[in-house]
Design a protein around this nucleic acid. Sequence first.
DNA 1: GAACTCCTGCTTTTT
DNA 2: GCAGGAGTTC
Length: 781
Amino acid sequence: MAGLNDMQDLACRHVDGPLLILAGAGSGKTRVITHRVAYLMDEIGVNPYNILAITFTNKAAAEMRDRVNNIVGEGAERVWVSTFHSLCVRILRRFSDRLGYATNFNIYDSDDQKSAVKNILKELKIDPKKYPEKMFLAEISNAKERYISPDQYAKMNATDFVKTQTATVYSEYMKRLRKFNAFDFDDLIYKVVELFEHNPDVLELYQDRFRYIMVDEYQDTNHIQFLMVKQLASKYRNLCVVGDDDQSIYKFRGANITNILNFEKEYPDAKVVKLEQNYRSCGNILAAANAVIKHNEGRKDKALWTDQGDGEKLVFNQSEDEYMEADRVVNEIIRLTANGAQYKDIALLYRTNAQSRILGEKLVMRGIPHRVYGGQNFYERKEIKDIMAYLKVVNNSTDDTYLRRIINVPKRGIGDATVDKVAAFAAANDMTLMEAMQIIEQVPGLQRSVAKISGFVELIDGFRGIIEEQEPLSTLFDRILEDTGYEDELIAEHTDESMARLENIDELRNRVVQFETDYEEATLADFLEDIALVSETDKMSDDDNMVKLMTIHGSKGLEFPYVFLCGMEERIFPSAMAINSDDEDALEEERRLCYVGITRAMKKLYLSCARNRMLHGSRNCNDISRFIKEIPPLLFQDSGDITRHVKRMEERQFADTGYTGNRYGSSGQSGYGKGSYHGRSSQTGSGYSSSNPYSSYSKAKKEPISITPSTKPSFGKEFTVNRELVLDYGEGDRVRHMKFGNGTVTQLVKGGRDYEVTVDFDRGGTRKMFASFAKLKRLEE
DNA sequence: GAACTCCTGCTTTTT
DNA sequence: GCAGGAGTTC
């Protein structure tokens, strides 16, 4: 298959049985998956309806959908491309009644989970100061990820006091969610696995539907996702997983790297294909990435390489504080754009969302268009949560959580004392809060509040009427803003803050209208689901010509010509938590994260840090990140700062031994350019990386790190340079296709390393296909 | 019942 | 440095 390298080609052509693709960063992973889909459909004749592609983010799903559409044309929309979570929601919307849940269930976000646990702790009289709800939530989530039910959990931990308490909370939590007809994120997958386990007919339905399964970012799957995939694939065993153990960065969320490392054990007949040729970054960037990741133990050995040349060197800067760091970054952005770079080609990446504030401020000051992704989520803002709570109550009022949030917002004189009385009545009579409020006259001990509450119930009933009459969502939205007086209150307040809130509400309204336009048939439940499952990064658009700011986690799967990795300091990146952790792997995960960050860059990578920065409200001095020191200095454009820094450290450490510091060349630009450093490094093993015996980090491996930022493959000769695809036909020519017979080429478009051919077949039908698959033969007529 | 003030604890990362 | 929670006062 031309347009693909040998390994990519091999992966595409593997049809039956398990397949593991180890795909390094930028190795054309999505390309392989989409080509494989095309191959299955066009060459093997697989019904697109039988293909499932699972991705990690909605953004990745959308991109894959797009690319599949482009390649296979007809029928592409019938390939099921989605994330684990939305796939599960769709299955549950159809079958959750088998588990005793209604199909209009709510999806809990972390805030909802938190308040649910908080309430349970109150009921069980557990002091949240001694045992914070966070602990219980983490433990519950953990159990769910391992497919451990509350009962099992209780049995497993019968001797441990705190854990028996956790078992009770877990059990109560699940009862509560069932009562409120809600699933949390973990449940979405857990409950599908449970559904499949107890309903073989349902499982078989989906097994037959998804005969060919592909899972992207497999290194980020957790145990329960592994189980689900296993269930689905067990009948036909056509499972293809794609991943890179070096890019596993979600262990904190339960991702289990052994899923990918042990794939061959689980499926002994698995075919394994490694993709190591990188098409994204230039050689210097790759060399830096390889050098950093090499410090990790326990990884599948591999190294990225490119045939695109070294490209530009890396830039490193240490500034005095975070403001000066931001200034420097912004200045460089101005310089880049003055030289023709587009704003959208630039990304600022950082370890924690908090770091975005100062960068954002500086960009505002200099009038640079930019957008901050993630962080203080749009949907976490108070006013948005309030309006969303109204929508959720209208959709499904069984859940007290949202009701309690809005019952007195805006203020309508229904205080906590009143709500507690009604709640007690509801609990005693086994009804929901809303049900009790509907018969409020029967609730004892309320005087003036009765009228207020029945007024509120009428309000909600009015909103529900709008839905029943099938009025558009935006109508409901506007009515909520008006009838509750929410908008009026903010307008009357007329402060900067209230105006900002109004703007946010406007933005939410835009999203409602957008959703309405995108999906005409959409219901309120659909909208709420979309909000619950789709993050902001997912909605990132390439049209906006803006500088993008996001965490490194958020950048996974993306690429940018110019990347700034900011805050490259010890205790920031790697984080203090990882440094102090007793878990050995914590640091390795940070390093993998660093690897992900570096490999986002295509043309040029900037690394920066500050000598001191505000943290937890106090100013701290932080050392340069160990990851910087793991990058060979010869890869840097101007290594003045880093050289001086390391030299100073060495002098400090070895002053009494008479060691005067190695001479890393002059501090000027030309110091490293002549290869002298590199030669020296491989002879003596000293250098900048942690293999340097004088470095402050001695945990490093003994072997010297010699990274060759070269164009040579890291292994074997079988990786030859791309062959160019040469076609012997053109537009207007008559061609023959193996399956579809004869036709006329109506269009020929070069797309990447392949051609997209449109053929008008004599037997009827126009098909778009990739030349590399179609294997069209020119007919002489 | 509401508004105001003080205090604490926290910062990874997110489907 | 900030948000959210608790406690106090009107």
